[in-house]
């Protein structure tokens, strides 16, 4: 591992802005955030695994296409696993499970994994995936707490708490993610930010 990405130091979601689509769409509860984060991390790890093996043999242009196809294949796997073993979670994540296929986290991570050696590719995929899952869970937990007054479905705030409906809506999700990124930058200092991706 070369420390290029990290769980805290260079978080893929909060610093690089990778995988923003589902990060706002499904993080209405902590459990959804965790489920989506783990599913995406799993697909990323598998994609990095294969790209670490074969990536060196591909040129720059082919890498993106191969990563996309691999990512789509492993997103299908993630969907089957969720549908079979966690049907309730699968229903609440909805269309965003197949959309893992075009997560910029995997597309960037997989393309980068190519040609960096097998060990580095795996380590990077693992660290980025965990970092993403942690960030997703935290964002989900904050939105759930503000929007419903619960944590992982259990009531934690007194009944008198008036839920802040905005936190559960798309608008609130965008704002909270923006604020979370700002806080992250303030705490961990600024690095490269706003890298392109989907």
């Amino acid at each position: 591992m070369d420390g290029k990405h990290g769980i805290l130091g260079n978080n893929p979601l909060l610093r690089l802005g990778l995988g923003i689509c589902p990060a706002v769409a499904v993080t209405t509860t902590a459990l959804n955030g965790l489920g989506m984060g783990v599913a995406t991390a799993g697909a990323l790890l598998l994609t990095s695994f294969v790209m670490g093996l074969i990536g060196g043999a591909l040129n720059e242009k082919a890498r993106f296409a191969v990563t996309l196809i691999l990512s789509a294949a492993f997103a299908s796997v993630a969907q089957m696993v969720l549908r079979g073993w966690f049907p309730a979670l699968n229903d609440s994540l909805g269309v965003f499970v197949p959309l893992i296929a075009v997560s910029s986290l995997i597309l960037c991570g997989g393309s980068e994994a190519a040609g960096r050696g097998f060990g580095a590719a795996i380590a990077d995929g693992l660290v980025m995936g965990i970092g993403y899952a942690v960030a997703m869970t935290l964002l989900g937990a904050v939105r759930e707490l503000l929007g419903r007054g619960t944590a992982f479905g259990a009531a934690v705030l007194p009944a008198a708490y008036e839920p802040l409906l905005l936190a559960a809506l798309p608008a609130g999700g965008l704002m909270l993610l923006g604020i979370a990124m700002g806080l992250y930058n303030a705490v961990f200092g600024r690095g490269r930010n706003g890298k392109e991706g989907a």
Partner: peptide
């Protein structure tokens, strides 16, 4: 400083949303 770039874009996108 810490809100420059992507963070402030996200917050403004939230307002548009």
């Amino acid at each position: 400083e810490s809100m420059k770039g992507l963070p402030i874009s996200l917050v403004s996108a939230g307002l548009i949303a």
